[in-house]
Computed example of a mutant assay.
Amino acid sequence: MDIKKIIKTLKGKNLYRQLKTIERAERVYVYIDGKRYINFSSNDYLSLAFDAELNAKHQNCLKKWPAGSGAARLVTGNFSIHEELEKKLAEIKKTEAALLFSCGYMANLGILSSLLGEKDAIFSDELNHASLIDGCRLSKAKVFIYKHRDTNHLKELLKKNRDKFETIAIVTDSVFSMDGDIAPLDELLKLAKDYNAYLIIDDAHATGVIGNSSLDFFNLKPTKRTIIMGTLGKALGTFGAFVASTKEMKEFFTNRARTFIFTTAIPPHIACMTLENLKEIQPRMVRLRKNIYLFSKLTGIKSQTAIFPLIIGDSGEALKISEKLLKKGFIIPAIRPPTVPEGTARLRITIAAGHSEEELRKLAETIKSLI
């Protein structure tokens, strides 16, 4: 493999990526090379991660709980605060139980690779997150891709193929991370019931945005064959992930999910901080919804979630606009292939509870002047 050639090719196609070094962060601002930028690209939807006042309260967690867990949960890394957080997460997802993982990627790999195998099938939305795609591959199950949010296409695939496999699962993001649209979970839940399938929902960008759970948005409750993956590192403002389902499913993943068994537990003080943050989410969700409504009205970009995709098309043009916005004081990196399909390079604008009306108006006006 010619590494230099690959890097050169990426640069020529405007697909080369570089890290931006953030010196510090506060509320919705980041500082780079001494200059402050308004952050409109974070997944910190409820503005919990960089809240100085809240972080001061977290000092009690650091005093009470260690900086690291020291081992995997099944060895000596299982602390009472982990179990307390799991009970709370199961409560907000309206499930019997929850199990903590180190991150969302690991959780999705663990769910899919342990639950499904060579005699099974997965029916996956074509725009699912990379972690779900990789989990499908790792499972060795037969994978059927259905058109984005197209339940008619999914039903056709299920009808034609269900009887060929032992266990099947319908797999979807609830809020899709690049487009911000919402999966038709009401219809998917019905199809899962009709075809005796598991419904695996990635709630990473839904938790704390469209409700405590994406199913809240549809006024639905999970069934015994519903498995919900959620993250702590987005709207909840800390780090880690979890899987919420039945007590039996928690027992199964504890014993079979390799990405749970063979990795160090999240630090106990992080679990404590997450419990503190959960006390803050309800009023912040109200503020976030107001900001989403206002920004949609100001820009004409329709979204029911915190994600507003501004499709540019060409990767080079998306980079240019991103740089112009940076000069105006806004940090909104260009999203390019392979993160999004060819020809759909974009600015992925994310709205947070901590953005002021003035900041939202300023961004909307700047976008209109540039595009």
Score class of each variant (00 low, 15 high):
Met285Trp: 06
Thr259Asp: 11
Gly211Ala: 08
Gly70Pro: 06
Glu83Ala: 08
Phe239Ser: 15
Asp134Asn: 14
Phe40Pro: 01
Phe217Gly: 04
Ser356Pro: 01
Phe308Arg: 07
Glu23Phe: 03
Ala97Tyr: 00
Gly110His: 08
Ile38Ser: 08
Ser69Met: 03
Gly240Met: 05
Pro341Cys: 03
Pro338Gln: 08
Leu220Tyr: 08
Ser174Val: 09
Phe242Asp: 02
Phe295Ala: 08
Lys13Cys: 07
Ala244Ser: 15
Lys119Gly: 01
Asn219Tyr: 10
Gly12Ile: 10
His148Pro: 02
Ile332Asp: 10
His205Ser: 09
Ala352Val: 09
Ala241Gly: 01
Ile122His: 06
Ser174Lys: 05
Lys8Cys: 03
Ile200Phe: 12
Leu319Glu: 14
Ile145Met: 14
Asp173Asn: 15
Tyr198Asn: 01
Gly208Lys: 00
Arg27Cys: 00
Glu96Leu: 04
Val171Ile: 15
Arg162His: 03
Glu251Ile: 00
Ile367Phe: 09
Ala206Gln: 08
Asp120Gln: 05
Phe79Val: 01
Met106Pro: 00
Asp150Cys: 07
Lys93Val: 04
Gln59Val: 10
Thr226Glu: 08
Asn55Leu: 14
Leu109Ser: 03
Val243Ile: 15
Arg289Phe: 00
Phe50Glu: 11
Ser315Glu: 12
Thr76Lys: 14
Leu310Asn: 06
Arg137Tyr: 15
Ile371Ala: 07
Phe217Pro: 07
Lys20Arg: 12
Glu248Phe: 04
Glu251Lys: 13
Phe330Asn: 02
Lys94Gly: 00
Phe295Asp: 07
Tyr198Trp: 15
Ala97Lys: 02
Thr350Gln: 14
Lys297Glu: 15
Thr350Phe: 01
His129Glu: 12
Lys327Phe: 04
Lys362Gln: 10
Gly135Thr: 05
Ala204Lys: 05
Thr231Cys: 11
Lys140Thr: 15
Lys193Asp: 12
Glu365Ile: 14
Asn43Cys: 11
Leu310Glu: 05
Glu365Lys: 15
Lys320Met: 11
Ala141Asp: 06
Lys290Ala: 13
Lys160Pro: 04
Ile281Tyr: 01
Glu358Phe: 11
Ala334Tyr: 09
Val286Ser: 11
Ser315Trp: 04
Ile81Glu: 05
Lys297Phe: 10
Leu112Asn: 08
Thr238Glu: 09
Gly117Lys: 10
Ser369Trp: 04
Ile332Cys: 10
Phe144Ser: 05
Lys155Ile: 02
Ser369Asp: 13
Thr274Pro: 05
Gly329Glu: 03
Thr226Ile: 02
Ser47Ala: 11
Asp186Gln: 09
Arg348Cys: 13
Leu54Thr: 06
Gly110Asn: 08
Arg284Gly: 03
Leu127Gln: 11
Ala98Gly: 04
Pro283Lys: 09
Asp314Arg: 02
Thr246Cys: 07
Leu347Ala: 01
Gly110Ser: 06
Ile133Ala: 12
Thr226Trp: 10
Phe40Met: 13
Ile6Leu: 11
Gly68Leu: 11
Ser322Cys: 08
Ile371His: 05
Met249Phe: 15
Ala204Pro: 00
Gly70Ser: 07
Glu317Lys: 15
Ala49Ile: 04
Glu251Phe: 07
Leu370Lys: 11
Leu99Gly: 02
Gly135His: 04
Leu347Thr: 02
Arg258Leu: 13
Gly68Ile: 12
Lys13Ile: 09
Ser41Tyr: 01
Glu53Leu: 12
Arg149Leu: 14
Ser139Ala: 09
Thr366Ile: 06
Leu48Phe: 02
Met285Lys: 11
Leu347Phe: 00
Leu74Trp: 13
Asn55Arg: 13
Thr305Ser: 11
Asp2Lys: 14
Glu251Asp: 13
